[in-house]
Amino acid sequence: MWKSIIYKEWLKVRWYLIAATLLLGIFVSYMFINVQHTIAFMQANNYWNVIVFRKEQYFHLIKYLPLLIGIGIAIAQYVPEIIQKRIKLSFHLPNNENKIILTMMGFGNLSLLACFSIVFLIFVGLSNYFFPYEIVNEAIVTILPWFIGGLAGYSLVSLIVLEPIWKYKMFYMVVAALFIPIYYESGVSGAFEPINFKLTIIALLISVSLLFSAYRFRKGEM
């Protein structure tokens, strides 16, 4: 039964997930082609100088991409479920309803994590090729909240999509619009060091928030 549920989730998101990973990959590749180009034109020492002392972010291009991908996965996964209220079929299965929702949510999060991890590892690998660990470390500290924000965005958009009442959908959108920018504040490179752990914990907590609107949905809240 669980295998079938996971397979159903995979069918919904597979093409989207592959396209998203490719898109992120293309952006990261472009970023480093740009790095190579800049080094060729302004020389490596000048470029390092600008990165270290003027805090230029060679990775700023991908800032909102993880968020867009997170939102996209949430839509791909949950919009089909609310069309004709198909998710109600899942709730009629002889399984714990919360477990079903958590499985769906877990699948979405793991898919996103897989996509982000692949790209993140490519990013770290290529950064290490061009820059010393001091610069790479600051870059990691800076882009981490963008990726975690992608996971938080996924959870909140899932919540909005599954919420049965439009008035509350709008309210949740306001909350998401206020909350998500926390992950995308424009700090200088390395500035997020003291907050990254807290942002991760919060993103983990939000990942179970879908249970709330799923509950309202299955209880027929109108």
Binding site: N98, V175, F179, L205, V208, F212
Partner: peptide, 17 residues
């Protein structure tokens, strides 16, 4: 479990506000 998820949402909303 649903109640906990509600309090998590309340918590992040308080934080955002």
């Amino acid at each position: 479990m649903e109640k906990i998820s509600r309090y998590i949402l309340v918590f992040i909303t308080i934080l955002a506000f």
